[in-house]
Every structure is written in C-alpha cells, then in structure tokens.
C-alpha cells in the first residue's frame, strides 16, 4: 500500500520551520526539516521526497543554488519556493531555475496546502489518461479494476492498474525500473523492489495475453527498462 507523501521543509527561520512541520504532519505528510542549505543537499541526495518546500535565503547554500543543482542532477521532485522574495523578477527567476511553484511570505497555511496538492496533481502523469484508458487492444477501467478486450474481462490488482496507467501515460518512451518503482510504489528501488516489479510485469503479460491476437505492447529494453509501444 502507498506510504504517506514525504515533504522536505528547507527553512532557516525556526518559528516558520516548526509551524510548517507541525501543520504538514497534521495533514498526513511525512515531514523532514533542514535549517540550512548543506543539510538539505545531504537529505535530498540520500533519499526521495515527494515535495520540497524551499526557502531561498539560507545559510551555507542558497535556495537558488540548491534548486539548480538538484535539477542538474536529474532530481525531478516538485519544488515549491517559500520565500520573502516577492518581487516579480524574483518569482520569475525562481520558476525559471526549476521551481514548480512559488509562494511568498507571509502566506496562508491552507493556501500552501492547496498548492502542495496542486503540484502533486500536476506532476502525476496518470492524470493525463484518467481512470479509463486503452492500452493495446485492452480497455482499462481503474474504478472497477478491470481490463476488457474481445469480450473477455480480466480483473486487475490496484498496483497492476497503476503500472498500466503509467505506461499508458508515457507511450513510446523508455521507462527505467527506478522511475517506474518511484512513481507506482512511491519509494526508492531496491533489489527486492526490482524483483517485485518484474514479477508484476510478468503477471500482467500473462493475464492480458490473448491467443491469435497481438501481445501486450509493453516490451523489455535490455539494460534500460520497459517501453509501451503505442500505435502511431
């Protein structure tokens, strides 16, 4: 089952940092705090977060520097800049260096929560295909966890449904095992996780195999991951 969404709060002001941590924990997030830039860098490189709330004026390494470095390292975790820098050019600069949203101090906690949720929705690729989508000959309906094709109906587990949804949302693109695991299982991949994922893919292929019809168009790319080959 999916774990609570993790949030990193990078904020040097103790009052705000403590208040935000209390507030977010209260709303079901797993909160980690970092009072300065180097600490935040260390945390992000060590584990995965779903959202980062990033102050810009930080001791050690500035928020802008952190954001740029993370994006350069391919870390795609959504970043919401929470800062006292409220001028237009500062907001634009923040968004251009890789932030997903920008909120200026002082702010409303409820507004911040709404923005966190919005960012999480925005970055969820499944939104593009919705609850009902097609993959190969199969019509998938996640609301009832069923796949239908040629009058045949197959029941799916929620994880299988999310795997199919992620593939449908990212057609014709190599998806690494790490990426798939992070997006579906919301966790860092391990050897056990890899085996679990491969087993789920194998199960899906056998469930959705139909004689005299085309196989499930999810192929293994050796050494890279998987790819959903959609019809052009």
């Amino acid at each position: 089952m999916a774990q609570p969404l993790s949030i990193l709060v990078v904020e040097d002001d103790q009052t705000i940092r403590e208040g935000l941590a209390d507030f977010l924990r209260l709303h079901g997030f797993a909160v980690t705090v970092a009072p300065e830039g180097p600490k935040a860098m260390e945390l992000v490189e060590g584990r995965r977060f779903d959202v980062i709330l990033l102050d810009l004026m930080l001791p050690g390494v500035s928020g802008e520097q952190l954001c740029v470095q993370w994006r350069q390292k391919g870390i795609v975790t959504p970043i919401i800049m929470v800062t006292a820098k409220g001028l237009e050019h500062q907001r634009i600069a923040g968004l251009e260096i890789g932030a997903d949203d920008y909120i200026t101090k002082p702010f409303s906690l409820e507004e911040l929560l709404a923005r966190i949720k919005a960012v999480l929705r925005r970055i969820d690729p499944n939104r593009s295909v919705g609850q009902k989508f097609g993959i190969g000959p199969w019509e998938i309906d996640l609301s009832v966890l069923k796949a239908c094709a040629f009058g045949k109906e197959v029941a799916l587990t929620p994880t299988e449904g999310h795997i199919l949804q992620y593939f449908a949302a990212n057609p014709n693109r190599i998806i690494s095992r790490q990426e798939l695991y992070e997006r579906v299982w919301h966790d860092q991949i391990t050897d056990i996780g890899t085996r679990t994922m491969d087993m789920h893919i194998a199960n899906l292929r056998s469930k959705l195999a139909i004689e005299s019809a085309e196989p499930l168009p999810i192929v293994t790319i050796r050494g890279a991951g998987y790819m959903y080959k959609a019809r052009s």
Binding site: D13, T15, I16, G19, A84, T104, P106, F107, L109
Partner: peptide, 18 residues
C-alpha cells in the same frame, strides 16, 4: 527590509493560524 519584515510576519501568521 522586505525579507526582515516578511519573515517575522510569516512566522507570526503561521503560529496564529495554527
């Protein structure tokens, strides 16, 4: 000044809202 005004205000607002 902007930062120094906004930061304590933000702290006060967070605390007050909580």
């Amino acid at each position: 000044v902007s930062h120094e005004l906004r930061t304590p205000l933000a702290g006060i607002r967070v605390c007050a809202e909580m």
